[in-house]
């Protein structure tokens, strides 16, 4: 975890930004932020600002990547070089972003009905414009909305969030500074319909009991996150419906 002098992350039961241990940061999702995309979503989660866009399905290229049985998903997660409060970042893929792209892709390989489009590809782009901890979870949460808005059939809208650990306390949805100095970080993506876990990563130290409790916190937070996702998808339709209500 982070170096340097460790700040006290929890004071009198409150976190540095005033949250309770099981409290999410403010969350806002907007559909259709990227006009050219087939489906897109913009998410603001705490200080994270992220765009997700879906293109396709279209013929998979180059030809050798095609799967005659089903569609493939290509995913590219990237952080902007100006996304952090620290130094200018490097552009282009690195080991971290390549891994996140891979595990994100695997989340959507689970829920997208890929067999309907043999030989095709779907492209998912997640661009982190501003980062403040938990960008992979926020990216997956936004991407799920972008996919749903694209009209490509899917079995569910997954959500993602992480649980961290500070001393003996589990905390939900860590921001950057918490992430830097925590004792553990466990990002998880879940399909709310089935409760199945589609992404699971962890580093640091956690007991079996802490993992169990952490997953419960995530499941509970999912109710809120799913609600925001669904409302974002319905919003444009409800707006026009309201407009013509007598």
């Amino acid at each position: 975890m982070g170096g340097g002098e460790k700040p006290q992350l929890i004071i009198n039961g409150k976190r540095l930004d005033g949250r309770a241990s099981d409290e999410l940061r403010p969350l806002k999702i907007e559909v259709g932020a990227v006009k050219n995309a087939v489906g897109s979503a913009y998410i603001e989660w705490g200080n994270n600002k992220i765009l997700a866009a879906v293109y396709g399905p279209k013929e998979a290229l180059p030809k050798h990547v095609q799967d005659p049985e089903k569609a493939i998903i290509k995913c590219r997660y990237q952080m902007s070089p100006f996304s952090s409060l620290e130094d200018h970042g490097r552009t282009g893929p690195n080991r971290r972003s390549t891994e996140i792209s891979k595990v994100t892709k695997e989340v959507f390989q689970n829920v997208m009905l890929l067999e309907q489009f043999p030989g095709a590809e779907m492209d998912l782009y997640i661009d982190v414009l501003q980062a403040d901890g938990g960008t992979r979870a926020a990216g997956i949460t936004a991407a799920a909305v972008a996919f749903a808005a694209s009209g490509i059939p899917m079995t569910d809208i997954p959500f993602a969030v992480s649980v961290g650990k500070v001393g003996d306390e589990l905390i939900l949805d860590m921001n950057k500074i918490e992430d830097n100095y925590s004792d553990a970080d466990m990002p998880v993506a879940i399909s709310p319909r089935t409760g199945d876990i589609l992404l699971l990563q962890m580093d640091g130290n956690m007991t079996k009991e802490e993992v169990r409790r952490g997953l419960e916190m995530i499941k509970k937070a999912g109710e809120t996150i799913s609600k925001v996702q669904r409302e974002a998808l319905r919003a444009p339709y409800e707006k026009t419906l309201d407009k013509y209500k007598k």
């Binding site: 009209g151 059939p153 079995t155």
Partner: peptide, 22 residues
């Protein structure tokens, strides 16, 4: 039964009209 797309669902007629779809 669960929908795989965004749609307009009519409970009585059990019909699902796609709002987004390919």
């Amino acid at each position: 039964t669960y929908t795989c797309i965004m749609g307009y669902f009519d409970e009585d007629r059990k019909s699902l009209i796609p709002l987004e779809g390919l």
